[in-house]
Design a protein around this nucleic acid. Structure first.
Length: 862
RNA sequence: GGGCGCGUAGCUCAGUUGGUCAGAGCAAUUGCCUUACAAGCAAUAGGCCAGGGGUUCGAGUCCCUUCGCGCCCACCA
């Protein structure tokens, strides 16, 4: 900045039009956002960018949170760090499957052979989906996600994200699959991953197991049915249930051990109505005497409490609901009577809903339904992406330990949460709550098609049954592998599915099992060790509050096991975007706003301005008014920059020694304060404060300082004029930089009018540097001067005069009059005052008397 | 039932360890074509800081409590 003369290349009529396209191209060609991988870990700032789900559409909430991260990235880059800012795409899993089904009008049927010539129909018919092979289906998934990713990248570039586009990954690509499989094999080898056959929450629509983290409760209508069981002597025992259709799956009754009403029954048996099955009556602390009749029927399985009872009381297993949510063909053990079997036969193949009606009918016929069902509304567990209640089905699944069944691991993971720096701090509480509330390990297998397959085969015995306890594993060098098309060591393809042959594990991993490795995948773990050492563990994980229990937690789990460290030192949690009615925006509510139209209407910088005005962790209303203000600010920066440059003239000099006037020094002293505050705010992940302070200074700079020094700056003869011009340019450079993280396009535009290179390459402004130029500058001078100017304006405004009107005389008095005196000439010029006096007194802070010329008589001018 | 966050001008929000903290912007109103900007500029008006108690010389700011809003978790016969 010092000893530098500038020439200017600004347009006559600056505009925001076309500014995004222009700079997106320039940045792409110059590589200004490229990660410099010659730098060591201590000089690097690395970001674990959330990979957006490409099968969805970007909405304004994405723009909001990604902008926050981008302001951080830009600050760190300007401040001297090599910023590692990759982008991932989450194209793995169920959302992609659903999108492919709808987009092409197909569905996956793994029993169909591959058709290399298959092409999807021109006009897909969503109601008549064409069944295709798994391989054809996956090809379509790959095809469509590539297209979706192009669209997303285009929007991100237009928004001005300073991503290094050479570093992208997709959660289904080869590297991600290899990483997910490698991490899984290592988890398995260390005993952190295991297979178990157990009751599992099951979505009957998608026919897949579902993890605890993917559940949500929904209020559903139901009804209490009072049903009579019978003691051996025939006397009834009344229970109440909302799930009478599970009567055939009943394995016991249970009451609280202290419940006097049922104490005599414990250890005895009763008989189920209709099916005539003898079941034990048990005591268990979880039975609530207040609910229903105080005694409940335990079925395999109606809810998670049933699972607990079943496990702890070591009860029989009598499942009746199949993977498709329908009643299975074979009656469970225990239904031995002819009548019982006949009754069961009427339920076979029925959905849960139909089975309920039929069972109630059977109970009415047998006289064991007491009264009418009593309607209630109660919460029911759903898969968050599903629309039918979850059932509980016993299946074989893969799990990763997460502390849900292990106090040591739980304590270690809680400790990791405490080591992590959270913005805002209170979000840590959600992590703690979640980890403390875990009630089982992490179920990672899904019975789906488009995902990372488990890298596992099983040998088949002489009867063709898989030996699950002797899995066949690939070496890490072979990864990624697909066990459904590749063959384990020592076998040939013709042994697939045959006795004494082998079978591939048919399942795929849950999408979180891959995305939980995003830091490792992006950092080149086991693929690019040099890169890995420069960027891992990463610095920052930005993400939404809704996925603390999934993405954040599972990422901590994986890094804890694999790397023995946190995956990053800091996390920043974004708030929700609310629509103008303060409702959370979500696809299901249909109130989502798509961002492209807003970017076009207000400019990218304007939309970023709105986003940057929302703090981390704070829900923020979608507000076009803020975007309007952002646009106004952008235009103001164009105009103010142009003006300062035009006043400065050709070969303007910014040598610090030229700045001699008290007002100029005062302004620069105030600027130094702003730089200091903005820098501290960025370091503390408070981008909003950095923006606020910068903006406040900028508007004061324009409204007051610029007006005050305008006349003086035009004077090319005097030293005072040179002081103003140098100060103006120095401040302008600082403002361009301070705004750069928020408004990358307009700042780059104005920067290009007088500087070489990119403003985004830095350096970030230094408070010390401005303080040195300001020397003895006192911000009080600027404050007092601006206040006097405001008083003059007020007098004119109240007299309904033009700001250009002449003032006869101004008298400034009070304790702070002396501060304003230092800028007497500027005040007189800006206020168009013929005379001005200062009277330092001890009374009052600052008062201003303005004498206007006598008003002309009405009509006198006419 | 447990936990977290929020309640400050009509609207959106600042207010960082208690002491010019009662603020900003928008909207409203009144004016000004002022040679960077009329998608601009200047000025005016607006609030018992949700209610009640307490600590303190002093409280939007700390403590207790009530009410309202939002979210997470648990329960779910």
């Amino acid at each position: 900045m010092a000893n530098r003369s500038h020439s200017f290349r600004m347009p006559d009529k600056p505009s925001l039009d076309g500014i995004e396209a222009k700079w997106v191209d320039v940045w792409d060609e110059s590589g200004v956002y490229h990660f410099d991988r010659t730098r060591g870990r201590e000089d690097v700032y690395s970001i674990d960018t959330p990979p957006p789900t490409v099968s969805g559409s970007l909405h304004i909430g994405h723009v909001f949170s990604y902008t926050h991260t981008d302001t951080v990235a830009r600050f760190q880059r300007m401040n001297g760090k090599a910023v590692f800012y990759p982008m991932g795409w989450d194209d793995n899993g169920l959302p992609t499957e659903r999108r492919v089904q709808n987009y092409y009008g197909v569905r996956c049927d793994p029993s169909i052979p591959y058709d290399p010539d298959f092409r999807p129909p021109e006009k897909p018919d969503a109601k008549r989906q064409i069944p295709i092979s798994r391989r054809n289906f996956i090809e379509l998934c790959d095809e469509l996600t590539v297209e979706d990713e192009k669209v997303f990248e285009g929007i991100w570039r237009r928004l001005g994200l300073s991503v290094d586009w050479r570093h992208t990954y997709a959660t289904i690509d080869d590297n991600s699959r290899a990483a997910a499989q490698r991490a899984f094999l290592r988890n398995l080898a260390r005993g952190e991953a295991y297979m178990a056959e157990a009751p599992t929450l099951w979505d009957v629509t998608f026919r897949t197991a579902v993890a605890q983290a993917e559940l949500e409760d929904r209020e559903r209508p139901s009804a209490y049915h009072e049903i009579a069981f019978h003691k051996p002597d025939g006397t009834p025992v009344h229970i109440e249930t909302t799930r009478p259709e599970l009567l055939a799956a009943c394995v016991a009754l249970v009451a609280h051990p202290d419940d006097e009403r049922y104490r005599d029954l414990f250890g005895t048996t009763v008989t189920t109505p209709v099916f005539g099955v003898e079941v034990p009556v048990k005591a268990h602390r979880l039975a609530d005497p207040e609910k229903g009749s105080g005694i409940a029927m335990i079925c395999t399985f109606g809810d998670t409490t049933d699972v607990t009872w079943w496990r702890e009381l070591q009860l029989e297993t009598r499942p009746i609901i199949g993977w498709d949510g329908r009643i299975i063909a074979d009656p469970p053990k225990g239904i031995d009577s002819e009548a019982g079997r006949e009754a069961y036969a009427t339920l076979v193949g029925a959905t849960v809903h139909t089975a309920r009606e039929r069972t109630v009918g059977l109970l009415r016929e047998s006289g064991d339904l007491v009264g009418d069902p009593k309607p209630i509304t109660h919460p029911v567990k759903f898969y968050e992406k599903g629309d039918k209640p979850l059932e509980i089905v016993t299946t074989r699944q893969w799990y990763i330990r997460n502390g849900g069944r292990d106090e040591d691991i739980r304590a270690q993971l809680l400790q990791r949460g405490r080591e992590l720096t959270w913005y805002p701090e209170h979000m840590r509480q959600r992590y703690e709550n979640w980890v403390e509330g875990l009630n089982g390990d992490w179920l990672i297998s899904r019975q789906r098609f488009f995902g990372v397959p488990f890298p596992v085969w099983y040998p088949l015995d002489a009867d063709g049954n898989p030996r699950y306890d002797e899995p066949l594993l690939p070496t890490e060098a072979q990864l990624p592998i697909d066990p459904s098309s590749q063959v384990p060591e020592g076998y040939t393809e013709d042994q697939r599915g045959r006795a004494n042959g082998f079978m591939g594990d048919p399942d795929v991993m849950d999408t979180w099992a891959t995305s939980s490795l995003s830091p490792q995948i992006a950092s080149g773990w086991e693929r690019d060790q040099d890169l890995f050492e420069r960027v891992f563990p990463m610095d920052f994980r930005p993400q939404g509050q809704d996925i603390i229990r999934t993405w954040l937690f599972s990422t901590v789990v994986r890094a804890h096991f694999e790397n023995g460290t946190l995956p990053w030192s800091t996390t920043g949690i974004s708030g929700w975007i609310l629509d103008p009615d303060r409702k959370k925006m979500s696809k299901s509510k249909g109130n989502v706003v798509t961002p492209v139209a807003l970017l076009e209407k207000y400019s990218s910088d304007a939309v970023r301005y709105w986003a940057a005005s929302g703090r981390l962790g704070t829900d923020t209303a979608m507000d076009e008014g803020q975007m309007k203000i952002g646009r106004r600010l952008s235009i103001k920066i164009l105009n103010a920059s142009k003006f300062v440059m035009s006043v400065a003239g050709e070969n303007a000099d910014t040598d610090a020694s030229l700045v001699t006037e008290p007002l100029d020094r005062a302004m620069l002293a105030a600027l130094a304060d702003v730089v200091e505050e903005a820098t501290a705010a960025f370091v503390a992940y408070d981008h909003t404060r950095a923006l606020e302070r910068t903006e406040r200074f900028f508007w004061d700079f324009c409204d007051d300082y610029l007006e005050l020094v305008k006349a003086r700056a035009y004077d090319t003869e005097s030293a005072e004029g040179a002081s103003a011009r140098a100060a103006l340019l120095i401040a302008l450079g600082a403002l361009h930089k301070l705004f750069a993280p928020f408004l990358p396009f307009v700042t780059e535009e104005v920067w290009s009018w007088w500087q070489d290179g990119s403003v985004h390459a830095g350096p970030w402004p230094s408070a010390a540097e401005y303080r040195a130029v300001a020397a003895d500058g006192d911000p009080a001078v600027l404050a007092a001067t601006a206040e006097v100017l405001r008083a003059v304006r007020k007098a004119k405004s109240e007299a309904k005069l033009s700001m250009r009107a002449e003032v006869e005389h101004v008298v400034v008095s009070g304790k702070r009059a002396e501060s304003a005196r230092a800028a007497a000439g500027d005040i007189a010029a800006a206020g168009r005052a013929a005379g001005i006096d200062f009277r330092a007194t001890d009374e009052g802070e600052l008062s201003v008397e303005v004498t206007l010329p006598p008003a002309e008589e009405d009509g006198a001018a006419g």
